[in-house]
Design a protein around this nucleic acid. Structure first.
Lengths: 147, 147
DNA sequence: ATTTTAATTGATAATAATTTGCAATTAACA
DNA sequence: TGTTAATTGCAAATTATTATCAATTAAAAT
């Protein structure tokens, strides 16, 4: 339950501070990203907005995501199959748990990653800058479903 | 330093056992995958083979990888940018450390993942089936380079 | 309030890795 | 050696994302 409003304002301020205009389309995209507890994809964002902006282009969603990513204000979860999910609420890297049936994405609490990262850095002599940890499985809802 | 020959034979046997023919092209692909300590991509595999098989198609590499993947004998490391790297030597999921400059991929020793996976399963009520852990950074060689 | 200017948008074309369809080839078995 | 289903090679199709460019517009300056 994060503070959507604060995230929204942070992103908007960062956009302004970097000389970007706040268009209505952009505003709508930022609103969705600031929540994004459900980790939406581009289509989800587009679908939510095109009701209010019928002429809106998918390219606009893509471009705004690229921009907001470049400001470090959204975490892009890209998957090998080409799908992408976004988290503008928690833009720092963090682990995810993904249901392979319903595609739900959940943020678990895990704090042992820092230690692990240090171990890996020592062993491999890498300077570690980033990481990505996904667990794949089946959520309890999908588990109890028939079929 | 794994046992290439054993991996090679294992994969070939599994192919035979599932009614697949051992063509010369396939044999060459399996050989490369059985080593694959350097985590080759499709292009790497294709380039290594087309000297011996000038008419060889990229599609054949793709198709064979799909097949061997379906038998669980190669680990596909797909990345959000669309690139893929393969490990037929260690086909079970394991962490990777990736240099963002030279794209080298290294396998660190890490054993605390099992515990972490159990914790996550308990907390989220997911049945965890798989995982993916990548650390991104700069290797020692790239670190000491100029530029 | 107008004007000015650069950023942004929308529509469409381009991109590029992977996949698919199909005819020709071939490994493996009888 | 013949038979048959699997495999190959080529080219076309696919598909998410990116780039192009003229028209629009937010926001600062006047």
């Amino acid at each position: 339950m994060a503070d959507y409003k604060k995230r929204f304002e942070t992103i908007i301020e960062k956009l302004r501070g970097n000389g970007h205009k706040i268009t209505p389309q952009r505003l709508a995209i930022v609103k969705i990203l600031a929540k994004s507890e459900n980790h939406p994809n581009v289509e989800n964002i587009y679908d939510q907005i095109k009701g209010d902006f019928p002429t809106m282009s998918l390219a606009t969603v893509y471009r705004n995501i690229v921009l907001i990513k470049s400001l470090g204000e959204v975490l892009e979860l890209g998957f090998p199959d080409g799908s992408n999910r976004y988290d503008g609420n928690q833009p720092a890297p963090h682990p995810h748990v993904i249901c392979i049936k319903c595609k739900k994405i959940v943020d678990p609490d895990l704090d042992s990653l820092d230690k692990m990262q240090k171990e890996v850095a020592e062993e491999t002599n890498f300077k570690i800058l980033n990481h990505r940890l996904d667990f794949f499985g089946i959520c309890s809802e999908c588990m109890t479903e028939k079929g």
